[in-house]
Amino acid sequence: MTDLSAPDAAPVARPVWLKRLTSRAVVAPLAAVVVFLALWEALVRINNWPNYVMASPSDLPAAYARYWQLFLVMGWQTLWRTVVGLVLAVVVGIAIGMVMGFSRTMRDALYPLLVGFNAIPKATVVPIVALLFVGMHDFNTVLIAFMISFFPIAVSVSIGLSTLEPEYRDILRSLGASRTAIFWKIALPKTLPEFFGALKVAVTLAFIGTNLMEIVSPHGRGLGALFDSAKTNSDYPLMFAVLIALAALGILLYYVVVALEKTFAGWAERDHH
């Protein structure tokens, strides 16, 4: 009895951060990445592909080592413009969503317009915007990131608000609460899960928008521009290194949104058995 309980009785007291780092939530995705890189490396070696067909993971560290400063500067450019575009998309998306969620007339009026706008491939808009505001690279990039990502937010907020069950509203309405009180205490929190669902889509879209603009702009900055110049110089390992950096940044942004969702809409999560 005493023997059995010995390991428990003498706790090594592993710190919380260590426990977290060794938890399944961290180990499993890391293992997946390692397997992925190994398969990639194997694929390139077995086929004996030269660099200009496909670089292999083992070529990448050299590229990062040589250009790490560029990666930091350009990565930051891409990051902040994506975030600013996304913040704009959130503000405008929520505003449009509220207008459409509360007024049936506005919903009927604006919906086709929004859908049409969203249906235009943004790759076609990029050159137009680039020409329209020549030389305003930051502005252009933020604008595209915004344009490409506000739609899901507007739609989710409007649907969330317009499908709010009357029962929810009646709890407060029966006490004579004002419309603002009902919005803040019921409609807004109730819509948060839908909002965050849309934000997860929007964050990836905004990121794509930023990169499109960076690649297309003649004197662009950011990771997209770095990719473009690597292409011009036929530096294939660098091109792949940029792609991986983009993926990493995309993952970072996505999980920031997931963390925000946990904080503000964690109640919507159910334990699945």
């Binding site: 009646d170 029966s174 919507a268």
Partner: peptide, 16 residues
Amino acid sequence: RATVGMAFQNPVMLEW
């Protein structure tokens, strides 16, 4: 009005 208390047939609670 605020002087009324009501329990609805469908007792919705605010999940958050």
